[in-house]
Amino acid sequence: MPVCIKGGCGKETMTRPAKNMKAAWAWFCALALVLSCLLLAACVFLISANAETLGMGGLRTDEVLSLLMQRMGLTILTAAAGVALALLPAMALGVGVSYLLPWPIRLRVSRLGFCIEAIPAVVLGYMTMRYIAPATSNPWLCLMLSLSMLALPRLFTEFCSMFGQDDGIRMASECLGGQTYQTVLHFSLPQHAREIGLIYLGAVARALCEGVAVIIALSAFEGYETLVTGAMRAVGVGMGATAPALGLAILQAVALLPPLSIVYITIYCMRER
């Protein structure tokens, strides 16, 4: 992207790193996408050629490709939507705790959230299967709710520590006669916009790689798999597992690379900006 660096214009100098970072982000994403797709294609080609040794679950190459695309779509959509579903309640909890509660209670609630965050995914997956899956007849909804339940404690603690740094802003706003909603909407949220984006992307990356919780939650439904659960089933994990198909498992793990690399590159570029 051509950027004017002559003329001594202060504004131009200040906006240049941001523009460069956007260009770098676009280039890196394109490069990661091309490389990971090439790697995936090479893996499909090599594994198809050795299908008898590695095992493709009895599927032809075109069937495998369509299966990978379908599962990749399901994985990305449910991860993004599930985390988005948890984002607003977690942010509201963070705002409520940081702005509406007195300090000692705020400290205790934050610590409680920090402790709840330690509950492992396998336990959360079990809770989803037992209590949420029976209430939802749709596997997509169940998966999204399961991912949002997984993301909620971590998002809450992240937002608590983020809004916990706002005491200065809060005091300044109150001295100027601002009310809580004005402080949050006009001072705090705009200041933390990038951090919120980073927190969201981080949670999406985690949701994309989530395995055991999702496989337990999806065991209530048949025929719905994400890339990770597909890989797990292909090596024989779970009750409804088919005959081991190592080739298929490898392909599904490799297919996780394009979305994950783009999310990580975006996080890196946003952090470095």
Binding site: P120, G211, I215
Partner: peptide, 8 residues
């Protein structure tokens, strides 16, 4: 807490 890697 890790289960995914061990299950695989």
């Amino acid at each position: 807490g890790e289960a995914t890697a061990l299950l695989l």
